[in-house]
Design a protein around this nucleic acid. Structure first.
Length: 690
DNA sequence: GTGTCCCTA
């Protein structure tokens, strides 16, 4: 998270990583070498270094607060592992929208080592590479490490790779585990350290242990536990199940406020709507009820908030006011808030699911795993002993699965499969996944890659198209649209479209100004669809007067990227700023691949044909009842009300995105004037004639 | 006439 003051930054560094020091030892209060010695991990230094020496893989089980993220790379450096290559420390994500925590970790370690950040110690996340030729300790995201493996399949620059937060089992973490296992067979000198929570340690050991005999002395992987620095958390279950956990959570908060000692409260719910509801309920009561008056204040946290809004959660309230943080699972691992003593947990989470039959990803609410429930409870015990109130029975808890389904098994795999192919892994079905995805979802991905012409009849990557597609930091259909748009003479336009689709949410509708916002948005709209709306200028003929409207991206540029202009037009300034940066990055790729970058100067057919060249598999036809059916799978869907094509009912459309709630909505939709566009551009995919 | 868990290259 971004913090205005230096003290706040320090606090965030401590919390978001491994709680470097307890609060009583604020940074600067004692010399750094003494601070380092106080960390729980310091006691295990000798043992750890011996194990790394002796075993190819070490699984370090350490609760938060052990100091492993900052200390382990330094120990390795001090033991000269930096002489043989770079020591990588990779994590599933950057925090929120900034790379601050990476910067803070690296800065902290650089300070401890007495070196300058970006020299011996550096970090790399997308758009932000602070490393040099001297760098020996490199903090990075799993995604960046994977990119590097694409260019250097043996990761030959690295001597040690630390995979941090491996228990989260994010998509790129899992891919990296499989790739590292492959590399280790060819590079016995490479050391891999997996940092994980207790529940999964044995799974990782079994995966990385190359010993096939019963003789344990020949093991190549070992588990070691590091003491954490967490306080005990008292767990209380509901006596009976609650149907309405949203209102129940308010009751529990009031109960805590009335009966428990001081300390802030963290409430876990599933989504934005629930969070906003609970925040409003609590704050209304704080305004109207006498005994609550100004004694309690609720603050929302979820991913969709702006950075400034999210930062409110870190601001301290006047003494005597209890803070109630109402959050989605963003507070489970991504952000840590100081001072939480009580946790209220609904036991549910909204997560991504993938249906390989329809090829649709959706969001569903499911019970959390035991591991998640423990992680949530642990949030109460960071500064002193805490309490966790679970809004479900102990019986329910015992019925939860131990761990969550890895992201690999609930994602669309098109990108993953393509990138594995690009890495020279021909038989992706045999790739050593820690948790293999279903054959069906792999087959679905292979089929789409084939119809995009990224794979040939033998399933090999096509040259150069398939390889170029893999190099793009985008979903393959979007990358295909860009690469093909040179041929349609509209790459200037598709670059802007791709950038806007990547950043999302360019139109904002504040709930109190919805009518005004929609009126402004209408000025951008054109009848050919959402893609064109983002870029192509149009002329409107009203009462014998001509109005020219530049569309979103171009208008932003023409208005000198002005924040005021964005505000007036109800478009998201931050998002568009980011789109400008993303567009530059994408343009570099197109130039590198020799794509002819020029503008179609308003030819909306060219733009829409380029869109079709990437998204032909997501095409739908109007049904007599006004709904749409996808051409291939016949899935019934509806054009989302935010689309410019809502209620316009064109016969054929292509779309980018599917959103499944009680209905299946399609978003970012463009008109296909003639179904022949589909059969001409993707004849291999649509063998029939309409 | 509706709405986005968390992320990443």
């Amino acid at each position: 998270m971004q913090h205005p003051g230096a003290e706040d930054r320090e606090a965030a560094a401590e919390n978001s990583l491994d709680a470097i020091l307890p609060n009583s030892f604020a940074a600067g209060a004692m010399p750094i070498y003494m601070q380092r010695r106080r960390l729980p991990i310091a006691a295990s230094r000798e043992q750890l270094m011996y194990l790394v020496d002796s075993f190819q893989t070490t699984i370090v089980v350490g609760a938060t607060g052990s100091g492993k993220t900052t200390q382990l790379p330094q120990f390795l450096f001090e033991e000269k592992w930096g002489n043989a290559g770079i020591i990588a420390c990779s994590q599933p994500r950057r925090i929120a929208v900034t790379s601050d925590v990476f910067e803070m970790t690296a800065a902290r370690v650089a300070e401890e080592m007495g070196v300058e950040i970006g020299k011996e110690v550096g970090y790399a996340v997308r758009f932000d590479d602070v490393t040099s030729e001297k760098t020996k300790i490199k903090y990075m995201t799993d995604g960046i490490l994977f990119r590097e493996a694409l260019l250097d399949p043996l990761l030959s620059r690295y001597s040690v790779v630390i995979i941090d937060e491996a228990h989260e089992r994010s998509l790129y973490t899992d891919i990296m585990l499989g790739i590292l296992k492959k590399i280790m067979k060819k590079r016995p000198e490479l050391r891999v350290i997996i940092s994980s929570a207790t529940l999964d340690a044995q799974v990782f050991k079994d995966f990385f242990n190359f010993n096939t005999t019963a003789d344990a002395s020949k093991d190549t992987a070992v588990i070691v536990s590091i003491e954490g620095r967490a306080f005990p958390v008292d767990i209380q279950f509901s006596k009976m199940p609650h149907a309405d956990y949203v209102n129940e959570s308010v009751e529990v908060v009031l109960h805590i406020h009335k009966h428990e000692e001081e300390g802030d409260i963290l409430v876990f719910l599933t989504g934005k709507d629930e969070v906003d509801t609970v925040v409003a309920l609590i704050n209304d009561m704080a305004k109207s009820s006498k005994h609550l008056l100004n004694k309690i204040r609720a603050i929302p946290v979820y991913g969709g908030l702006t950075l400034d809004e999210q930062n409110q959660v870190f601001e301290s309230l006047p003494s005597g006011v209890r803070k109630v943080v109402v959050a989605t699972n963003i507070a489970e691992a991504s952000i840590t808030i100081d001072g939480i003593v009580y946790v209220v947990d609904c036991g549910l989470a909204k997560i991504k699911a993938y249906n390989p039959k329809t090829g649709l990803e959706s969001l569903i609410v499911v019970p959390v795993s035991k591991a998640s429930a423990q992680q949530r409870a642990g949030r109460a015990g960071r500064t002193k002993p805490g309490k966790c109130f679970r809004m479900y029975t102990e019986r329910t808890y015992l019925g939860l699965s131990d761990t969550s389904v890895p992201e690999m098994q609930r994602s669309n795999l098109v990108s993953v499969i393509l990138q594995l192919k690009a890495m020279g892994i021909e038989n992706v079905l045999r790739f050593d996944f820690l948790s293999a995805p279903s054959a069906e979802s792999m087959a679905k991905a292979l089929e789409l890659l084939y119809s995009l012409k990224a794979l040939d009849d033998y399933g090999r990557l096509t040259m150069p198209f398939g390889l170029q597609l893999a190099e793009f930091p985008l979903d393959p259909p979007l990358a295909a649209m860009l690469l093909n748009s040179g041929g349609f003479l509209c790459a200037e336009e598709t670059l802007s479209i791709a950038a806007i689709l990547t950043v999302q949410n360019v139109f904002v509708s504040p709930s109190n100004l919805r009518v005004e916002a929609e009126e402004e948005h209408r000025k951008f709209r054109v009848e050919e669809g959402d893609h064109v709306t983002y870029v192509i200028d149009s002329i409107l003929h009203v009462f014998d007067k001509y109005f020219q409207f530049s569309k979103v991206y171009n208008a932003f540029i023409k208005n000198k990227q002005s924040a005021q202009w964005c505000h007036k037009r109800f478009v998201n300034y931050k998002a568009l700023q980011r789109a400008v940066v993303v567009r530059k990055q994408l343009e570099k790729y197109l130039k590198k691949f020799g794509v002819d970058i020029r503008s179609c100067r308003g030819d909306t057919v060219a733009v829409r044909k380029a869109v079709v060249s990437g998204y032909f598999s997501q095409a739908a036809k109007l049904q007599p009842d006004g709904s749409y059916a996808t051409l291939r799978e016949r899935t019934i869907c509806h054009i989302h009300p935010t689309s410019v094509l809502f209620n316009r009912s064109p016969n054929y459309v292509v779309f980018n995105e599917v959103l499944q709630t009680d209905r299946i909505w399609i978003r970012d939709v463009s008109v296909v004037d003639d179904p022949k566009w589909l059969t001409d551009i993707a004849s291999h995919f649509y063998e029939f004639k309409s």
